[in-house]
């Protein structure tokens, strides 16, 4: 199979899983985005061996490498919010910084504590 065809097939498989994830989200009625279902579904299929890594590898690597591209059109929506940043910039900056540093310490501290325990369990 030529490289381009293989890539296209992988892409279609990823699209199919994504579509299934969206359907699962709709059917479940839970307020959880479809792509969460899709990612968990692909992880499950990989673990079960139904989907092999080589079925998705190249397309997955390509999409992940250029994922930032998709965020640009999303962020352009900011043009409707210019005033907010001008008027409330300080509060927003405080919220972003404090709510990053506090959990950063929390996850680091808890992980450091239990990583030692996990290491102990396995050795």
């Amino acid at each position: 199979m030529s490289k381009a065809l293989k890539f296209a097939a992988q892409l279609i498989l990823l699209c199919a899983v994504s579509w299934l994830g969206n359907q699962a989200a709709l059917l479940s009625g839970l307020p959880v985005p479809g792509n969460v279902f899709g990612m968990v579904l692909l992880f499950g299929l990989l673990c079960l061996g139904v989907v092999k890594l080589e079925y998705v590898q190249e397309a997955a690597d390509f999409l992940l490498k250029h994922m930032l591209f998709f965020f640009i059109p999303l962020a352009v929506g900011l043009m409707n919010w210019g005033r907010l940043f001008y008027e409330e910039g300080l509060v927003l900056a405080a919220a972003v910084v404090i709510s990053s540093v506090v959990p950063l310490w929390l996850v680091g501290f808890l992980a450091q504590y239990s990583a030692r325990r996990d290491k102990g369990c396995n050795s």
Partner: peptide, 10 residues
């Protein structure tokens, strides 16, 4: 973006 997010499972 949907398929790209799904790819995070890899």
């Amino acid at each position: 973006l949907g398929p790209a997010t799904v790819a995070l499972a890899v």
